[in-house]
Design a protein around this nucleic acid. Structure first.
Lengths: 228, 228
DNA sequence: ATAAATCTTAATATTTTCTTAATGTTAATA
DNA sequence: TATTAACATTAAGAAAATATTAAGATTTAT
């Protein structure tokens, strides 16, 4: 299991690494949020321990950024212990929270607790980022999409659109929003390539594209994948 | 989302139910571990909030039992706050831990944090913009409007008008005010498009549009959504 | 380099929504 | 109770948004 520890305080970084090494985890270190994002892009990280206060990019922002397309558990570290900070951290997408100074045993316990959800009994197999709603499921690790267990083959753009909508099932995205998130550039009108892709996706994941069960349109607002 | 709350203290049970109800979760109650296991067998439960100290079967044993074949996130509740208990709870398979007495906001935050991986993560905008009054509820994220749990489909303009009035339930808005806020331009008379939209909204959210329960008119002044 | 797959564009169709305008109804008040 | 101003109702045409299709451009794989 690979754990990324992100803190600008080198001493704490080293201390945590020692505790985790001792438990048999492979530990990567980052001094700030940007470094963390880089490492996450390169290595397969299973858990992140992240300080909130850091230069360059703080832990909360980094967590938000990570959560945009990865489902890696995050444990927040902070010197503050007030409720408001705790709540903010958890709402930003953190999975757990530890205040400094921390008890090494508690750190280990929380690490294990978070990793437990992603290991299957018996093996140390990592879990993949699976997004599902109803009979629709996409596995971000393998890029496999299934509908009621049946695999469907999506093209890259189709996959990105469906992932965005499924990862945030229930939320409505305007066409422009979709364009921006997927193409990473602002949409310029006239714009109907998204509509074309939506059609193609529907052809593949819906029984009847005209009466979509998953990929719905909200007139005048945009598209969403139904939260089922 | 269905949440099972398990505690032998009826007061705490009811208090938690109120907090969670208010956030739009469906709440099931159990007085001990055995009852909890029963309900889990019957209903689809997405999260469990469990007290550690209970008669019949305590929370730790129940959690272990649940973890034998289900992977439902568990948040532990306990009066004790010593580190050892905390660690034990987490090692037993709990995903999070709250000590009594607890801050309701923190409870909600931790619940959301655990459930996020079910609804699946994504953007930071997890704050659910939900406006409700009586049986009327609108969720700004999914653009879903429900009346007594029944979904109704509003058009964009209809939605905007109803959102304005519901978000400020009780306040009366003149027709011109509504026009300005929704169309973002001053109203020019003769103007009756707002009235037409009001009618359409009433058709959708009211049992009897002629005797509206939610969307009322205040003669000579304007419209409001009743604060219930 | 070529073929296959994928993406975008553009033209057109279809669906849904919005506004207008004509007319009806209600509530306050003199 | 007659008057009037404000709201209600309806239907139809205009406008806006999405859907669809096919062809051409681009990218990817072999």
């Amino acid at each position: 299991m690979n754990i990324l520890v992100c803190d600008d305080d080198k001493e704490i970084l080293d201390a945590i690494k020692i505790y985790l090494d001792n438990e048999g985890y492979k530990v990567f270190k980052a001094a700030n949020g940007l470094e963390a994002l880089e490492i996450i892009g390169e290595k397969e990280i299973h858990l992140i321990i992240m300080d909130i206060m850091m230069p360059k990019m703080d832990g909360l922002r980094a967590t938000m950024k990570i959560r945009e397309d990865k489902n890696i558990p995050v444990i927040m570290l902070s010197a503050k212990s007030e409720d408001t900070d705790k709540i903010m951290g958890l709402n930003m997408g953190a999975d757990d929270y530890i205040t400094k100074p921390f008890n090494p045993l508690e750190l280990i316990a929380r690490v294990k607790s978070q990793l437990r959800r992603y290991t299957t009994l018996g093996s140390l197999e990592t879990r993949s980022n699976v997004f599902k709603t109803g009979g629709l499921m996409l596995d971000d690790e393998s890029k496999i999409v299934t509908v009621d267990g049946e695999a469907v083959k999506l093209t890259p753009v189709q996959y990105k659109i469906l992932k965005l909508l499924t990862a945030n099932a229930g939320r409505v995205y305007s066409i422009d929003e979709i364009y921006e998130k997927v193409w990473k550039e602002p949409a310029v009108s006239p714009e109907n390539t998204v509509a074309v892709h939506i059609r193609k996706i529907r052809e593949k994941i819906e029984i009847n594209p005209k009466e979509p069960k998953y990929l719905k349109v909200v007139w005048g607002i945009g598209y969403k994948v139904e939260k089922l």
